[in-house]
């Protein structure tokens, strides 16, 4: 009886252990042969994985809280710097009926809901170029009436800014003369498609250039 149960045990072991061992050898063999391909593909593949699923909603986050701060400076540590597609302020030209929520980034979410600061430019108070886009059919339609000397008001959670329009120009979209992203002086550039109120599309853009006249300068940016 003992002998027969031992035999059964041995049989079961054979039938379970041998395939498992073979499977492990197959894994090792396959991994060894294809290791360079697998590791490269996995490392590239990992670049396209996120812990959180992509949010396909068209909503956006608003971090703008109006403030009365009109001081000359504000420390960088007091600012919540915006990330892409977040509303962080408002922009208005009262005389010309221009009002838009101000976003960081100028993709479809910002431009559907207001105006967007190009992420390769800077936010107000940084002391550099602020390049803002808006649609001519919606939020930036009023730019067509802007004149030299008009005041552009930008409100953010960390301060309120005013810029005086110095000029308006029409450039082609691919013209690099229309902006300077390396400028060391704070300057605001608003642009929209041109011509206004016409059916159709062109390569032309209408630019409004303005210089800062007031608003807190961000200090303590660099250690």
């Amino acid at each position: 009886m003992k002998k027969s149960s031992k035999k059964i045990d041995k049989n079961i072991k054979k039938f379970i252990i041998v395939p498992i061992v073979m499977c492990i050898v197959m894994c090792i063999f396959t991994a060894a042969v294809f290791y360079p391909n697998i590791s490269f593909a996995v490392s590239i593949g990992n670049m396209f994985l996120s812990d959180k699923q992509v949010d396909y909603s068209k909503s956006y986050e608003n971090i703008f809280v109006p403030t009365d701060n009109n001081s000359d400076t504000i420390d960088a540590s007091e600012i919540e710097f915006p990330s892409i597609n977040k509303q962080f302020g408002e922009i208005r030209i009262d005389k010309r009926n221009v009002y838009a929520k101000l976003f960081f980034g100028d993709g479809s979410v910002p431009l559907r809901n207001g105006a967007g600061v190009y992420a390769g430019s800077f936010i107000p108070g940084y002391g550099k170029t602020i390049l803002v886009a808006g649609h001519n059919n919606t939020y930036f339609n009023g730019l067509k009436n802007v004149k030299k000397g008009d005041v552009v008001k930008v409100s953010t959670s960390y301060g309120n800014y005013e810029y005086k329009v110095t000029s308006t120009k029409i450039h082609n979209a691919d013209s690099k003369k229309s902006y300077d992203l390396k400028a060391d002086k704070e300057n605001l550039i608003l642009y929209t498609c041109y011509p206004f109120d016409e059916l159709g599309l062109t390569e032309k853009r209408f630019f409004v250039y303005a210089d800062k006249i007031s608003g807190p300068q961000i200090v303590g940016l660099y250690d």
């Binding site: 068209k58 431009l111 559907r112 649609h135 059919n137 498609c193 059916l199």
Partner: peptide, 13 residues
């Protein structure tokens, strides 16, 4: 449709 609406916003539509 969304992309076309965006382009429409710049085209007077």
């Amino acid at each position: 449709t969304d992309s076309l609406m965006d382009i429409g916003d710049a085209s007077g539509l």
